[in-house]
């Protein structure tokens, strides 16, 4: 089947019910999207499908044919995603970092659909688990961005 992932077209040989996560990781070698539970409980596998966040560990690959999938690897190609990454670095959110791909993707989806989310909307959208306890840093980063999204983007990035 033909998939659109990160603005590229891939021919993938997989059964229709294979979770998108494993196609992304094992067939395409894009390992930024993480496996944490396989049950849509933790959100480490979050990706964008047509700009909306989905948990790829329970999304059959056949369901995204004809749609645009964005993984963490291409998140900075998105104007909002780029700003999310920049604010994640600014707030020094990551600890172990394993859940942060999913957190960044979830924040990007939220802010793309709603640049000015209120506290309740942020709480409803940012539900991915983090065992390191970066929840307050995530909250601060998303609030910061929600308050400033009207202003022009600063250059993203950071050191390695």
């Amino acid at each position: 089947m033909e998939l659109r992932i990160n603005q590229k077209t891939y021919q993938v040989d997989a059964e229709a019910d294979t979770p998108l996560l494993w196609v992304i990781r094992d067939d395409l070698g894009l390992t930024g999207t993480k496996y944490g539970c396989g049950l849509a409980q933790c959100g480490a596998c979050s990706v964008l499908v047509d700009g909306n966040v989905v948990r790829s560990c329970v999304t059959p690959v056949a369901g995204v044919v004809g749609r645009e999938v964005t993984t963490i690897e291409a998140i900075e190609a998105d104007e909002v995603g780029k700003r999310v990454v920049a604010v994640w670095v600014e707030h020094q959110v990551a600890q172990c970092g394993y859940c942060q791909s999913g957190q960044v993707v979830a924040a990007t989806a939220l802010l793309k659909n709603n640049p000015k989310p209120d506290d309740g909307q942020i709480a409803a959208a940012m539900v991915n688990l983090c065992r390191c306890g970066t929840y307050n840093a995530i909250q601060a980063a998303v609030h910061d961005l929600a308050a400033n999204l009207a202003t022009p983007a600063a250059p993203a990035g950071g050191n390695a």
Partner: peptide, 21 residues
């Protein structure tokens, strides 16, 4: 001092054992 791994961990570039190929 800012963490050396903040950017890589915010962009999926950090590699863990499970990512090795």
């Amino acid at each position: 001092v800012r963490r050396l791994d903040a950017y890589d961990k915010s962009t999926g570039k950090a590699l863990y054992s499970i990512d090795m190929q």
